Simulated assay, not measured.
Amino acid sequence: MTKPVRKAVFPVAGLGTRFLPATKTMAKEMLPVVDKPLIQYAVEEAAAAGIEYFIFVTGRGKHVLVEHFDHAFELEQLLGARGKTEALETLRAAIPAPGTVISTRQQNPLGLGHAVWCARAFIGEDEPFAVILPDDLILSDTPAIGQLIEAHAKVGGNVVATEDVPREHTNRYGILKVQSDDGRLARADGLVEKPKPEDAPSTLSIIGRYVLDATVMDRLGSIGKGSGGEIQLTDGMAATIDDGVPFHGLRFEGTRFDCGDKVGFLKANMAFALDRPDMRDDVAAFLKDMAAGL
C-alpha cells in the first residue's frame, strides 16, 4: 500500500526573463491570470488534492511569494472598515493553515533537479511527494495533481503528467521511452531529456506535475550535471527506473497552458476568464468583436 502524498514542492527560483521588463522587480509566479497570481493557482490546486504542506524553493527577490500566503493586517483592517466583506474573505481564504508554508533557498541556478533537491530536508526518507511547476497552469474539473495522486495510489513509484506533442517539439521536453500504454496511463522504462526529433523514443512529453518516490531525492544528490550543464529532474527519475522503481506517465484530464510563454499566458487569461460566470459573456463578446475585425 502506498503512503499518502502530503507535501508538494514548488520550484520558484527562476528569473522569468521571458517576461522582462514586467519581471524586473516582480516574481514571475506573481503574474496574474485574471485576478490571481500563478502561484496561488498552484497552491490551491495542491490543497484541493489533499496536500497539507507547501514547500517553496525560492531565490533572490522571491520573498513576496511567501508573503502572499500570509496575513496583510493593514489591508485586512482597511477592507473591514470599509465594509468590503467579500474581498476580505477572498484574501483570508487564500492563506494556508499556520505552519504549512515552508521556504528554502536555491542559491545557484543549477536546474530543476537541483531545485527539487534543495527541499530534501523536508521530505521523509520513504515519503512520496508532489512537485508542481506554477508556469504550467491547468484548467480542469479535477485538480491535475490530484489525478496523479490517485494514479500513484494504484501503481506507486513515480507518476508524471504527460501530453503528446508534435515530434518536431520533442527537443523542448523530457520524453518517455514507453514500455506499455493503455491510452491514459503509460509505463516507461526510460526517459530522455530534450531529445532531437529523430532521436526521440516517443512523443509523450512530461509537463509540470509530478508525484515522486522519495528515492528520487537520493539520486538527485549523486547524479551530477546533465543536459545544459544542469542537474536534471528527468535524470534523477531515470536513475530510479534503473533501481526498479515503477515509472508511469498519466495523460491528465484538462487543458494545460504554458504560462512561461507570452502567448500561452495570454491564452490562459482568456480561457480562465471564459470559465468565470461573472466574466464569460463580456469576454466572449469582446473576442468575437476582435475576431470579426481580423
Results as ranks from 00 to 15, higher is better:
151 A>D: 01
45 E>D: 15
128 P>I: 06
37 P>F: 06
130 A>H: 01
115 A>D: 07
28 K>F: 09
196 K>C: 03
244 G>T: 09
61 G>K: 12
83 G>R: 09
208 G>H: 03
248 H>N: 11
94 A>S: 15
254 G>C: 04
149 I>P: 09
117 W>G: 11
5 V>E: 04
283 V>N: 03
8 A>E: 09
66 V>R: 13
120 R>H: 11
175 I>E: 00
254 G>N: 12
32 P>G: 02
75 L>S: 08
225 K>S: 11
158 N>C: 14
228 G>D: 11
69 F>S: 08
196 K>V: 09
57 V>W: 02
118 C>W: 00
58 T>E: 07
80 G>T: 04
274 L>C: 08
148 L>C: 10
266 L>Q: 10
282 D>M: 13
151 A>W: 01
285 A>S: 11
21 P>C: 13
228 G>F: 11
180 S>D: 13
69 F>M: 09
97 A>V: 08
105 R>P: 03
26 M>D: 02
17 T>G: 06
64 V>Q: 08
10 F>N: 03
275 D>G: 15
61 G>R: 12
216 V>G: 06
209 R>P: 09
83 G>C: 04
20 L>Q: 14
197 P>T: 01
291 A>P: 02
178 V>H: 00
219 R>I: 01
114 H>T: 05
290 M>L: 14
60 R>L: 06
282 D>Q: 14
238 A>C: 00
121 A>R: 15
175 I>Y: 02
271 A>R: 14
219 R>D: 05
70 D>H: 13
137 L>Q: 08
203 T>M: 00
193 E>W: 04
72 A>T: 14
177 K>C: 06
124 G>I: 02
101 V>P: 03
229 G>H: 03
184 R>H: 06
273 A>T: 01
191 L>W: 00
113 G>C: 13
10 F>Y: 15
184 R>F: 03
235 D>F: 00
179 Q>A: 15
26 M>P: 01
156 G>K: 05
90 T>D: 12
195 P>L: 05
117 W>K: 12
190 G>Y: 00
113 G>M: 04
138 I>C: 14
167 R>T: 01
